[in-house]
Amino acid sequence: MTDISFDETLDARGLNCPMPVVKARKKMAELEAGKVLRILSTDRGSIKDFQGWAKIGKNVELLGQETETEDGVELFIHFMQKAN
């Protein structure tokens, strides 16, 4: 576990491309600038997806990513901050 603090969590487990990013986008839109969203995903592709978003997105920053194993299922956790 990293010690990145977050304000909200989005459970995108079980969802496939492009839903984790699409749902995260909707959630991010509701957040105030500076807030951090934690996204839980079981989609392997989401690692590169969130990196790609951070690369082209203008008002987001990817603070960190981690992988955990939960009941034998890999869980990918992303921390995205809404920039100012």
Partner: peptide, 12 residues
């Protein structure tokens, strides 16, 4: 549609 929705999601 996957590209379209994905692109909107990343701010395009």
């Amino acid at each position: 549609f996957i590209i379209a929705t994905g692109a909107v999601a990343v701010g395009q």
